[in-house]
Design a protein around this nucleic acid. Sequence first.
DNA 1: GCAGCCGTTTGATCCACGTCAAGCGGGAGC
DNA 2: GCTCCCGCTTGACGTGGATCAAACGGCTGC
Lengths: 247, 247
Amino acid sequence: MSSAPSAQPLSLERLRAACSTCGLRELCLPVGLSDGELDRLDDLIHLRRTVKKSQSIYRSGERFDALYAVRSGFFKTSVLLEDGRDQVTGFYMGGELIGMDGIGTEHHTCDAVALEDSEVCVIPFARLEDLSREVHALQHHFHKVMSREIVRDHGVMMLLGSMRAEERLAAFLVNLSQRFTARGYSPSEFYLRMTREEIGSYLGLKLETVSRVFSRFQDDGMVSVQQKHIRIIDIPRLKQVVGHPSC
Amino acid sequence: MSSAPSAQPLSLERLRAACSTCGLRELCLPVGLSDGELDRLDDLIHLRRTVKKSQSIYRSGERFDALYAVRSGFFKTSVLLEDGRDQVTGFYMGGELIGMDGIGTEHHTCDAVALEDSEVCVIPFARLEDLSREVHALQHHFHKVMSREIVRDHGVMMLLGSMRAEERLAAFLVNLSQRFTARGYSPSEFYLRMTREEIGSYLGLKLETVSRVFSRFQDDGMVSVQQKHIRIIDIPRLKQVVGHPSC
DNA sequence: GCAGCCGTTTGATCCACGTCAAGCGGGAGC
DNA sequence: GCTCCCGCTTGACGTGGATCAAACGGCTGC
């Protein structure tokens, strides 16, 4: 029923389907659009791409011509230095937009890699600009999305520049929890899609330190950690750890 | 002569003058606009604000309604945590845009403070959106500016997350040098407008460390440092320090 | 021209996190 | 169901940068 093509209206429905029937539309690009405007966005976003675990949507240096909205799955972006060191610059889940780094130079400046089998909607950027010149709400919302990316990065800079290890990991967990909540998942129980090393890279820590801090949080009864399965037992206390130099 | 209004064409010229006669137009928002389009941008940007040293353009939490282009002078932006720690998130010089953090939430999320007596052009954001719906080149360039801010932030994250102190300061100096060059100043000799503490905050280091690394660079004959007066003696070597873990 | 202050430099010591190393355990592949 | 590998945990030790402390020197204001 779900894979066999048919002449039924249902499958027509599925073909037309893009943003207007997407469960993530309240988190993604279509926020604030009227039904008519949504239809116009659907015309633009008709291509979807599946990305297998550890494959990339794009690599640094590749030509930029589209943004990607995460339809399902989980991604990381990372930049690398010549000498091999690399820095994870972000994690992305359903409804979030990837690729805005490429607009400025028309080439991507980081890699976008799937951390599990995933699916993205392809948003041709030139056409997005065309449409957002006509649809004020789309223009405005897109600007907001870019602005929030900047603010998010400032948060990471704050974290990297002036927090200690425990604060960083607590902030990271609280942030994940909030994003899962917004997507209708449990705020307190989730699977990490990334390794300790990737978390460490994002937080400016070594994987051993990440592991040790997880253990400490567990000993303190704030979270329960079993490999990638996380259960947050005391969110308020975790929030308290952030912004308090732990002494 | 400069403050008395008169009927002379010269002063009319000065009144009309904004982007179209600005020496920074090749670095700022007007990049890529035709003469006609420039005139329309001039209609929008007619207000200038002087900001004395240590005064702010805006503070975190204030309502957002405009972007600011640095006309002259030097600024920092910083975010602060409840407990008083703050993190400098950027330094801004002539032709650079400040305030994009506010678009997402309609409130500013950081403070923008002048490091010397400065002047900014006020760009009402709603009108900028209106105009960029009509002027494709403006729309596209604005998107590029935002994107570059994101890429710049990624660079800082890389620096904070995986570089050692010497690399961070070297990267910082090289970056400043390039930006001064683009503005027609010497690539190798300039005054720092910020304190060691502000540099440290930006780079995730303490002011003592910044000072020590400056001294080490000077001992190595790479730069000459006298308080805020910096002369870079060996730019290639400085660039080499970045991206090489110094061992 | 003098005093006071603030930003800076430099030294001595400390400690959070990195590094190195060993062992564990769960999941994938046979 | 067994084996291997990879990601994770944990311990012992090292170190880069933080912290604490003192002194210097160049502006600013009188």
